[in-house]
Protein backbone atom coordinates (compact mmCIF):
# COMPACT_ATOMS: atom_id res chain seq x y z
CA UNK A 1 0.00 0.00 0.00
CA UNK A 2 1.24 3.47 -0.88
CA UNK A 3 2.51 5.52 2.05
CA UNK A 4 1.88 9.23 2.56
CA UNK A 5 4.99 10.29 0.60
CA UNK A 6 3.86 8.18 -2.38
CA UNK A 7 0.36 9.61 -2.22
CA UNK A 8 1.74 13.16 -2.08
CA UNK A 9 3.95 12.39 -5.04
CA UNK A 10 1.11 10.90 -7.08
CA UNK A 11 -1.19 13.79 -6.16
CA UNK A 12 1.42 16.33 -7.21
CA UNK A 13 1.93 14.63 -10.58
CA UNK A 14 -1.81 14.45 -11.26
CA UNK A 15 -2.29 18.05 -10.16
CA UNK A 16 0.40 19.23 -12.55
CA UNK A 17 -1.23 17.21 -15.37
CA UNK A 18 -4.56 18.92 -14.74
CA UNK A 19 -2.87 22.34 -14.60
CA UNK A 20 -0.85 21.72 -17.78
CA UNK A 21 -4.00 21.27 -19.85
CA UNK A 22 -5.82 24.18 -18.26
CA UNK A 23 -2.81 26.47 -18.58
CA UNK A 24 -3.02 26.64 -22.39
CA UNK A 25 -6.62 27.79 -22.12
CA UNK A 26 -5.69 30.38 -19.49
CA UNK A 27 -2.78 31.74 -21.54
CA UNK A 28 -4.83 32.00 -24.72
CA UNK A 29 -7.65 33.74 -22.83
CA UNK A 30 -5.29 36.19 -21.14
CA UNK A 31 -3.60 37.01 -24.44
CA UNK A 32 -6.76 38.48 -25.87
CA UNK A 33 -4.91 41.51 -24.54
CA UNK A 34 -1.32 42.13 -25.52
CA UNK A 35 1.36 41.12 -23.02
CA UNK A 36 5.08 40.52 -22.85
CA UNK A 37 6.47 37.57 -20.89
CA UNK A 38 6.59 38.91 -17.37
CA UNK A 39 3.39 40.98 -17.63
CA UNK A 40 1.52 37.84 -18.72
CA UNK A 41 2.92 35.84 -15.80
CA UNK A 42 1.91 38.62 -13.42
CA UNK A 43 -1.57 38.94 -14.91
CA UNK A 44 -2.14 35.22 -14.46
CA UNK A 45 -0.75 35.33 -10.91
CA UNK A 46 -3.06 38.24 -10.05
CA UNK A 47 -5.96 35.99 -11.04
CA UNK A 48 -4.71 33.21 -8.79
CA UNK A 49 -2.81 31.18 -11.38
CA UNK A 50 0.85 31.10 -10.37
CA UNK A 51 2.98 29.70 -13.17
CA UNK A 52 6.71 29.05 -13.03
CA UNK A 53 8.94 30.86 -15.51
CA UNK A 54 10.27 27.59 -16.85
CA UNK A 55 6.76 26.47 -17.72
CA UNK A 56 5.18 29.65 -19.04
CA UNK A 57 7.84 31.11 -21.33
CA UNK A 58 8.51 27.99 -23.42
CA UNK A 59 4.71 27.49 -23.64
CA UNK A 60 4.18 30.96 -25.12
CA UNK A 61 6.93 30.25 -27.64
CA UNK A 62 5.29 26.94 -28.61
CA UNK A 63 1.88 28.55 -29.07
CA UNK A 64 3.45 31.26 -31.20
CA UNK A 65 5.19 28.64 -33.37
CA UNK A 66 1.83 26.89 -33.78
CA UNK A 67 0.37 30.14 -35.11
CA UNK A 68 -2.01 30.65 -32.20
CA UNK A 69 -0.22 33.84 -31.10
CA UNK A 70 1.34 36.72 -32.98
CA UNK A 71 4.41 38.45 -31.63
CA UNK A 72 6.21 41.72 -32.10
CA UNK A 73 9.53 43.04 -30.79
CA UNK A 74 9.03 46.60 -29.52
CA UNK A 75 11.04 49.01 -27.40
CA UNK A 76 9.47 49.85 -24.07
CA UNK A 77 11.15 51.40 -21.01
CA UNK A 78 14.50 51.54 -22.85
CA UNK A 79 14.48 47.82 -23.65
CA UNK A 80 13.33 45.73 -26.59
CA UNK A 81 10.59 43.38 -25.49
CA UNK A 82 8.61 40.73 -27.29
CA UNK A 83 4.86 41.30 -27.07
CA UNK A 84 2.36 38.54 -27.68
CA UNK A 85 -1.30 38.57 -28.64
CA UNK A 86 -3.92 36.05 -29.74
CA UNK A 87 -3.96 35.47 -33.52
CA UNK A 88 -7.14 34.79 -35.54
CA UNK A 89 -6.36 31.07 -35.49
CA UNK A 90 -5.72 31.33 -31.74
CA UNK A 91 -9.10 33.02 -31.25
CA UNK A 92 -10.84 30.14 -33.05
CA UNK A 93 -8.99 27.57 -30.97
CA UNK A 94 -9.79 29.49 -27.79
CA UNK A 95 -13.52 29.52 -28.61
CA UNK A 96 -13.48 25.76 -29.18
CA UNK A 97 -11.45 25.10 -26.04
CA UNK A 98 -13.80 27.28 -23.99
CA UNK A 99 -16.79 25.23 -25.15
CA UNK A 100 -14.96 22.00 -24.38
CA UNK A 101 -13.94 23.31 -20.98
CA UNK A 102 -17.51 24.26 -20.08
CA UNK A 103 -18.80 20.86 -21.17
CA UNK A 104 -16.09 19.10 -19.19
CA UNK A 105 -16.79 21.28 -16.18
CA UNK A 106 -20.51 20.51 -16.35
CA UNK A 107 -19.77 16.79 -16.48
CA UNK A 108 -17.31 17.00 -13.62
CA UNK A 109 -19.77 18.99 -11.51
CA UNK A 110 -22.04 15.95 -11.60
CA UNK A 111 -19.22 13.61 -10.72
CA UNK A 112 -17.22 15.32 -7.98
Amino acid sequence: MADKADIDDITEKLRSEIRRGALVLAVLAQLRQEHYGYSLRKALADKGLEVEEGTLYPLIRRLEKQGLLTSEWREEARRRKRFYQLSDAGAQVLRQLQEDWLELDASLQQLV
Partner: peptide
Amino acid sequence: TEVRDDLLGELEA
Protein backbone atom coordinates in the same frame (compact mmCIF):
# COMPACT_ATOMS: atom_id res chain seq x y z
CA THR B 1 17.64 36.40 -27.34
CA GLU B 2 14.28 35.06 -26.25
CA VAL B 3 15.57 33.66 -22.97
CA ARG B 4 17.38 36.94 -22.34
CA ASP B 5 14.11 38.81 -22.88
CA ASP B 6 12.29 36.56 -20.43
CA LEU B 7 15.06 36.84 -17.86
CA LEU B 8 15.37 40.61 -18.10
CA GLY B 9 11.60 40.93 -17.78
CA GLU B 10 11.76 39.09 -14.46
CA LEU B 11 14.74 41.15 -13.24
CA GLU B 12 13.06 44.44 -14.21
CA ALA B 13 9.99 43.48 -12.24
